[in-house]
Design a binder for these strands. Structure first.
Lengths: 379, 379
DNA sequence: TTGAAAGCGGTACCAT
DNA sequence: ATGGTACCGCTTTCAA
């Protein structure tokens, strides 16, 4: 066997390019380019000769970046997360959504670029149309440098500068946040009405003393009870929607929302929720029901109840949101939302931007799934 | 307020570029470029004036693709999966690994490009040094078009053409497959020795009739018992390693490996494992112990046992591998491997390629974690 | 069928 | 502190 192909350098140690191959074969760059990109534009023999030469020279085909530049297409879409990527993968709900996006991306040969946007202080929200003053470091840099054809926003707070930046780049985006800028295509669920389903179920079972578990209200990592003002100040649309739904159902039967303990776990994790549950589990007037804005949190509450010897479904009721796979195993009452479908639609919206002038706002159906963790209010 | 900034087009409907801004301000492209990339190269006033003009023109900063081309750096690393992306996210082990990679990528402002390589037939493995004949569609296209600075291979079969392609592109890569080409930097664990820990534990408890649960041997989706020949023909290094470890320990105490039922779930999922478990659970000479090559599979076996009223740890023993978070909750005996650390090291290897000539081959420590699912062999 | 020339949008080096 | 100039590697008219 001859000398083994070394990296992708030509004999003089330079990376082989189209030109290198063209010279070797004695044709023009165009022809070589065509050999790869438009096989029908040249005769089969020549094409073979070109590939031969390419192989010999260690040329592995047109450079991806250069091609992207010239074509004006990156061949990838960006997934923008607020959370550290690390956390994004921790919730089965996120994973379900991601899978949906991935499916359609895959099908169209498009890559998925994960873009972390660690929660950081960012300036006041005003002046949304003006591109963010450049020169900042994170997270603007990430958005600006992303080689993508569009962005899928996932849990990006209302008013986040990334949106202005993306718009300024002239790239399409899609959000899953109901309360977001109406000019951004949206796919999601009716958060408020869906949350209401869970709360109505609880109310129907006779519960009047309820607590609510959320991931975070004021700032990431801050756990404990949150005041009504703090709740309303949150910049997370989903949170607002779900709390609103709970509130609707509870106020309808005369429960004062201020009497409802809303507790933040600090982050969206089972163990954090289990700890934070102490805020309402270990007090005198323990609630008879707990509404968690996500299943992962609900599972944590379940853990906490178990630790305290409470029989869930009898001594206390717990309802979640999402219907992640674990929910079934835990017999958790919850609200099912089609996370995979949400992701697929989001992906499609990005890959095949609809013709119509109207900004798409798609709402997917949800459904209450009653299992074993909810039961009649004690006494 | 004035007309709102429309996308990123200038007054004549063209995308604004460096030049546009330069013309507007009356400076050269270089200066504008410096305003963004090297703030210290020009005076503050001018910089402000440039940003002003940029804002006015709807210019959102240097184009990512162009910058990548010129700089010769993509600012992202590719994550190559064999599985459909969809499955990749389903296993907490993968997620853990991914988080590790993500962490270091994040820290260095590097993006993560997910590249799906759906299992498809690909030609014979021979001739690994020759770049794959171009012109094919998937999955070569994905690798060739990926705008990245390096690749992290994750569960890519030995001999997969992607490797030759990456080498031909002259990009660095790292694998987690022990049996892979020794010229590819590697980080992982001693699969064989680690699996042996689990099997030895089982043997020590007196078990001699054992079954093994794997995800897939011959082809994805094919479930059921696998012959020894099929096992040895698998192109998945991890599988081979773990089976080898089990075999070592069992043969050491005189168990004939051919008597060990090795059952494939068809895919790496809890429910698939639960179903496939019927192949050894519902037969006359039911094994007293089950070794699963991954926790997700082990959890499925646990489900299957529960369905049949078997008390795990007494009637039958089950040991997993990985030590995913759920394992603790299920009190599963397993082998712990540092998945996050594995990911971090892989990421680092890619981002800061070591100086040394030697190809890095890093083995991380593992440890047997004995919980409640294993007990003495009955009788 | 093949080739020449003109960019795609920037960055880096070297002068000024 | 600025600007000129070359070039990153490819694709795409358009003409031969």
């Amino acid at each position: 066997m001859g000398g083994r192909a070394v990296g992708a350098k030509d004999s003089r140690g330079r990376r082989a390019t189209l030109q290198t191959v063209a010279d070797e074969v004695g044709v023009s760059r165009t022809t070589v380019s065509n050999a790869y990109g438009r096989p029908d534009q040249l005769n089969k023999d020549l094409r073979e000769r070109i590939f031969d030469a390419a192989r010999r020279l260690g040329y592995s085909g047109p450079d991806a970046t250069a091609r992207s530049l010239r074509r004006g297409r990156a061949g990838a879409i960006g997934l923008l997360f607020t959370e550290t990527l690390s956390y994004a993968f921790a919730d089965p709900y996120s994973v379900g959504f991601l899978r949906g996006v991935a499916e359609v991306a895959e099908a169209s040969g498009t890559g998925l670029l994960l873009i972390p946007m660690p929660p950081r202080a960012y300036g006041p929200a005003g002046d949304k149309d003006a591109p963010v003053p450049p020169g900042n470091d994170d997270p603007e840099t990430a958005v600006r440098n992303a080689v993508v054809d569009g962005f899928c926003l996932y849990c990006v707070p209302v008013g986040h500068p990334a949106k202005a930046l993306i718009r300024a780049r002239g790239l399409p985006m899609v959000t899953t946040d109901e309360r977001d800028d109406p000019s951004i295509p949206y796919v999601g669920i009716d958060e408020r009405a869906s949350a209401r389903l869970a709360a109505e179920h609880i109310v129907r079972l006779g519960h009047r003393r309820v607590a609510v578990m959320v991931d975070q209200v004021v700032a990431p990592g801050t756990s404990g009870p949150a005041t009504v003002e703090e709740q309303l100040a949150s910049d997370c649309g989903d949170l607002q929607g779900r709390l609103g739904g709970y509130r609707d159902a509870l106020e309808e039967v005369g429960v004062d929302w201020r009497s409802v303990r809303v507790v933040a776990a600090g982050r969206n994790s089972r163990s954090a929720a289990a700890s934070a549950a102490a805020h309402f589990l270990d007090v005198a007037d323990r609630p008879t029901a707990v509404l968690a804005i996500g299943d992962v949190l609900a599972l944590g509450v379940l853990d906490a109840c178990e630790q305290r010897g409470l029989v869930v479904g009898r001594d206390i009721s717990v309802a979640g949101f999402d219907d992640v796979p674990e929910a079934e195993r835990a017999r958790l009452t919850t609200v099912r939302q089609p996370m995979g479908e949400k992701g697929r639609i989001a992906g499609r919206l990005l890959l095949e931007p609809p013709e119509e002038q109207k900004v798409p706002r798609i709402k997917l159906p949800t459904e209450l799934v009653v299992r074993a963790t909810t039961g009649p209010a004690p006494h």
